[in-house]
Measured scan of single mutants.
Amino acid sequence: DETGKFLVLSLYDYQEKSPREVTMKKGDILTLLNSTNKDWWKVEVNGRQGFVPAAYVKFL
């Protein structure tokens, strides 16, 4: 199980638009929880879990 094993870097600021999403700032290091959807990845940032656009992050 690779859940929570990968870190990704936020390339852009992102403001959550729904309760299922999370806000991140450019340069944030996020824990990747799920990347099965090619468009939206589930991450943990600042103690919160939610989705961010996959195009806004990259693997470290």
Rank of each mutant, 00 (worst) to 15 (best):
F59G: 07
T23I: 04
W40I: 02
K5T: 12
R20L: 14
Q15I: 15
D28A: 07
V52I: 10
V57I: 10
G27T: 01
W40A: 01
G47H: 05
L7M: 10
D28N: 06
G50M: 04
N37C: 10
N34Q: 10
I29M: 07
L60C: 11
W40K: 01
G27L: 02
S35R: 12
E16W: 05
R48M: 09
L32C: 08
A54N: 02
Y14A: 02
K42G: 04
I29W: 05
N46S: 09
K25R: 12
R48A: 07
I29P: 02
E16H: 08
T36K: 11
K17E: 08
P19L: 09
L11A: 06
G47Y: 04
F51D: 03
V22H: 02
T3C: 15
L33W: 04
Y12E: 11
M24R: 00
V43K: 00
L30Q: 01
V45T: 10
R20H: 14
T3M: 13
E2F: 11
N34L: 08
V8P: 00
K17M: 12
K17Y: 05
A54Y: 02
P53Y: 04
L30P: 01
V52P: 01
F6H: 14
R20I: 12
E2D: 13
V57Y: 03
Q49R: 10
Y12C: 15
V45K: 10
L7K: 11
K42T: 06
V43I: 08
L30V: 08
T31H: 10
K26S: 07
K5M: 11
Y12I: 11
Y56Q: 06
Y12W: 10
E21N: 05
D1F: 13
L30I: 08
D13I: 03
K17N: 10
T3A: 13
Y56K: 08
G27H: 04
D1Y: 13
M24F: 06
F51L: 09
V8A: 08
S18F: 06
G4P: 13
D1L: 14
Y12N: 10
Q49T: 13
V45G: 06
K5E: 10
K17H: 08
F51V: 06
K58G: 13
K42Y: 15
K25C: 09
P19R: 08
S35G: 11
F6I: 15
Y14W: 11
F6W: 14
R20T: 12
K58L: 11
G4Q: 14
D1M: 14
D13F: 05
G27E: 03
P19D: 12
N37A: 08
G47T: 04
E21R: 04
K42S: 07
Q49M: 10
K42W: 15
K38Y: 07
K5Q: 12
S35F: 11
S18H: 11
Q49D: 06
I29N: 02
V57A: 01
V43T: 00
F51H: 04
S10T: 08
L11W: 05
A54S: 14
Y12F: 13
L33S: 02
S10G: 09
K42C: 15
V52R: 00
D28I: 05
N37F: 07
P53W: 05
V22M: 09
K25L: 08
V45F: 13
V22C: 06
D13S: 07
G50C: 03
Q49C: 10
A55L: 10
K26N: 03
P53S: 03
G47W: 02
Y14Q: 01
Q15P: 08
G50W: 03
E21H: 06
L33E: 01
F51S: 02
E16C: 12
K5N: 11
T23Y: 04
S18L: 08
L33H: 05
D1I: 14
V45H: 13
A55G: 12
K26P: 04
L60G: 04
D39C: 13
G27S: 03
D13E: 05
M24A: 02
L30T: 01
L33D: 00
K5V: 13
K17G: 08
L11R: 04
G47Q: 05
G47M: 05
N34S: 12
D1P: 14
P19G: 09
L30A: 08
N46Q: 09
N34A: 09
Y14L: 02
L33I: 15
V22N: 02
F51G: 01
Y12L: 11
A55Y: 10
E21M: 05
G4W: 12
S10C: 15
S35Q: 10
Y14T: 02
F6E: 10
R48W: 04
D39T: 12
L9M: 13
K38I: 08
D28M: 13
R48F: 07
L7V: 08
V57M: 06
Q49P: 06
F6G: 12
Y14S: 02
T36R: 11
E2L: 14
T36Y: 10
Y12R: 11
R20Q: 13
S10E: 02
N34Y: 06
N37L: 09
K17T: 12
L11E: 05
F59I: 15
K25D: 03
A55V: 10
K26Y: 05
Q49H: 08
K17W: 04
M24H: 01
K58D: 11
E21A: 06
V57P: 00
T23L: 03
E16Q: 13
I29D: 00
V52K: 00
V45N: 10
R48H: 07
V57N: 00
Q49S: 11
T31E: 09
L11P: 01
V43A: 00
L32S: 01
K26V: 08
L11D: 03
P53N: 03
N34H: 07
A55E: 11
K25I: 08
V57G: 00
A55W: 08
W41G: 00
V52N: 00
S10Y: 07
L32M: 04
Y12G: 07
R48S: 06
L33F: 03
L11V: 09
A54C: 06
V8K: 01
A55P: 07
V22G: 01
Y12S: 11
D13Q: 03
Q15K: 12
L60E: 07
T31S: 08
N37W: 07
S35L: 08
K17Q: 13
L32Y: 02
K38F: 07
K38E: 11
F51T: 02
D39H: 13
V45P: 00
F59S: 09
S35I: 10
N46C: 08
S35T: 12
E2G: 14
F51M: 08
K25N: 09
G50L: 03
D28T: 07
G4E: 13
P53K: 04
T36W: 10
N37T: 06
